[in-house]
């Protein structure tokens, strides 16, 4: 049990993720392995991630490609089964849910918005059927007339015309498709939206419209967001708190302002230094040095040590845990020991 002071925080959290891990077996076929004496090959896509998302707020996960942020998103919505760990939604453990009506009722409250608006809408379906699908799947509305009304209202809500329901997805632009995607996600009145890079496939001019729409909807419907992105500007605009992931682990979780003003983890600093800045045009930006190591054979100890300027022997052998550091949580031996002054 958490101490009394923490309990109020816990009850406010809509989503609690605890030591979540997921491994993928990417071994070659059995016969091939036996003949060539190859071992199994396991990717540790997510290796023990914990976070909580308070009701009505946005937590963003950022990190380079391959750091496991998309896997976390898919674990949370139930597309993958976790290898280890728990996901609690409104107090209910999603990993222990049986496939019954109670599970259905919980799943109805979680929706997802996908990255590629050109792949996330079935090209053979009319928009009205796409938007109505969750309504029908969760049997929210039985009457077809009510479904049609709800679809028209949803399309209007996301800035499309109710008449657009007759059309097929290919008749829309990327931004409009993402609006359809949002309408679909909202149709069964969820509380929690998982957004997997919802604007990364869109033109910059359209990104802001979609982000603002999402913010307005959050306020209006008091939604909770788990927002996945690699774009720090987008994340800054959207989030209340930000989690920085590296190679399947969370290295820093901090309130948005704190993270941008005073990043603690060496990796977070590296990421922020790499952002282009209009006021500093012409300055040579320090690039994020080195490559992300393979998640098949992650480095021992702190996974970031091969690229870290402050790494020492402890970093190479001991995995750092998340520790409170002011209002942030940081997983770094150098920060803990105070040898991170650049």
């Amino acid at each position: 049990m958490p101490p009394d002071g923490a309990r109020s925080l816990v009850t406010e959290a809509l989503v609690e993720v605890e030591d979540l891990a997921r491994e993928f077996d990417i071994s070659r076929p059995w016969l091939f392995r036996v003949l060539n004496g190859e071992p199994r090959r396991i990717v540790h896509a997510v290796a023990g991630v914990s976070f909580t998302i308070p009701r009505g707020t946005t937590l963003s996960l950022v990190g380079e490609s391959g750091c496991g942020k998309t896997t976390v998103a898919r674990l949370v919505v139930g597309l993958y089964r976790p290898t280890r760990g728990r996901i609690r939604f409104d107090g209910v453990d999603l990993t222990a849910l049986a496939a019954n009506d109670a599970a259905r009722a919980i799943r109805r409250r979680i929706a997802m918005i996908f990255q590629d608006p050109y792949a996330s809408l079935n090209p053979r379906w009319r928009v009205r059927d796409i938007v109505a699908e969750p309504l029908r799947a969760f049997r929210v509305l039985e009457d077809e007339r009510a479904v049609a009304e709800r679809v028209a209202a949803l399309l209007g809500h996301v800035g499309l015309s109710p008449k657009d329901g007759e059309k097929f997805p290919h008749e829309f632009s990327g931004g409009q498709r993402q609006r359809i995607s949002i309408a679909r996600a909202l149709s069964a009145t969820p509380d929690f939206l998982v957004c997997d890079e919802p604007t990364s496939a869109l033109d910059v001019s359209v990104q802001a419209q979609i982000l603002n729409l999402m913010k307005d909807l959050q306020e209006e419907l008091s939604l909770t967001y788990l927002f996945i992105s690699h774009n720090l500007a987008v994340v800054r605009h959207m989030s209340d708190r930000i989690g920085v992931m590296y190679l399947g682990r969370m290295v820093e979780v901090a309130p948005t302002d704190a993270l941008f003003e005073a990043p603690r983890h060496p990796y977070t600093r590296m990421l922020l230094d790499a952002i282009p800045d209009l006021e500093m045009t012409g300055r040579r930006r320090s690039p994020v040095g080195g490559e992300v190591p393979s998640p098949i054979a992650p480095p021992p100890g702190c996974a970031f040590h091969p690229r870290c300027p402050f790494a020492n022997a402890r970093c190479r052998s001991e995995v750092p845990r998340l520790r409170a550091e002011g209002d942030a949580l940081v997983a770094c031996h150098a920060v803990e020991e105070g040898r991170d002054a650049a």
Binding site: V77, R104, R107, Q115, N122, R124, W125, A137
Partner: peptide
């Protein structure tokens, strides 16, 4: 493709997804 994932997220059965989502495509 993500439209199949979208159908899986709302808990449709594999048979239903194959029939109404994958088959037409």
């Amino acid at each position: 493709k993500e439209y199949v994932m979208a159908a899986r997220v709302i808990g449709l059965s594999p048979a239903r997804i194959m029939w109404s989502h994958v088959l037409p495509n």
